[in-house]
Computed example of a mutant assay.
Amino acid sequence: MDSSTGTGAPHTGSRAYTLVIAAPTILLPASSLANANAGTAYSQTLNPASGGTAPYSYALTAGALPAGIALSAGGVISGTPTASGTFNFAVTATDASTGSGPYTSAPRGYSLTVNNPIVIGPASLPDPVYAQSYNQSLSATGGTAPYSYSLLAGALPIGMSFSSAGVLSGVPRTPGNFSITVGVADNIGVSISKVYTFTIAAPVIAISPTALPHPVLGVAYSQSLSSSGGIAPYTYSLISGAIPVGMSFSSAGVISGTPVSAGNFTFVVRSTDDAGENSSQAYTLTIAAPLLAI
Rank of each mutant, 00 (worst) to 15 (best):
I231R: 08
V167D: 08
S237M: 05
P66C: 13
A54W: 00
G109K: 03
Q281N: 13
Q281K: 12
A70P: 00
V269G: 11
I158G: 14
Y236G: 02
L291D: 11
N278Y: 11
R173D: 02
Q44M: 03
E277M: 15
M160P: 04
I243F: 05
A282G: 09
D2F: 05
A206E: 10
S227Q: 04
Y234F: 12
S97I: 11
A23W: 00
N37G: 04
V167K: 01
V195S: 15
I287Q: 06
N135L: 12
Y149L: 03
G8H: 03
R15M: 04
P175N: 15
V119Y: 01
R15Y: 03
L212V: 05
T61L: 07
S227H: 01
Q44D: 05
I294H: 14
A62S: 13
L112F: 03
P107I: 15
N177W: 06
G74C: 02
G253L: 13
N264W: 06
F89L: 04
I205V: 06
L112V: 10
S14K: 02
L292D: 04
P81G: 01
S31T: 15
I118M: 07
I188A: 07
A206P: 00
S137G: 14
A62P: 00
G176F: 14
Y17S: 04
R173N: 08
A293Q: 12
P203T: 12
T12K: 09
A59Q: 14
R108Y: 09
L28P: 03
G189F: 01
L238F: 10
P117T: 15
Y283W: 08
G99H: 09
G143E: 00
F198T: 05
S31V: 09
I26A: 00
T113P: 00
P126D: 06
Y149T: 07
P146I: 09
G189W: 00
G75K: 03
L168S: 03
M160F: 09
T210E: 03
V167W: 06
S72F: 09
G121I: 11
I188C: 08
Y221P: 07
N278H: 13
S148A: 14
G13E: 13
L217A: 05
L168R: 06
A288M: 09
A145K: 07
G241R: 03
P102D: 09
V76D: 05
G75T: 05
F87E: 00
S4Q: 10
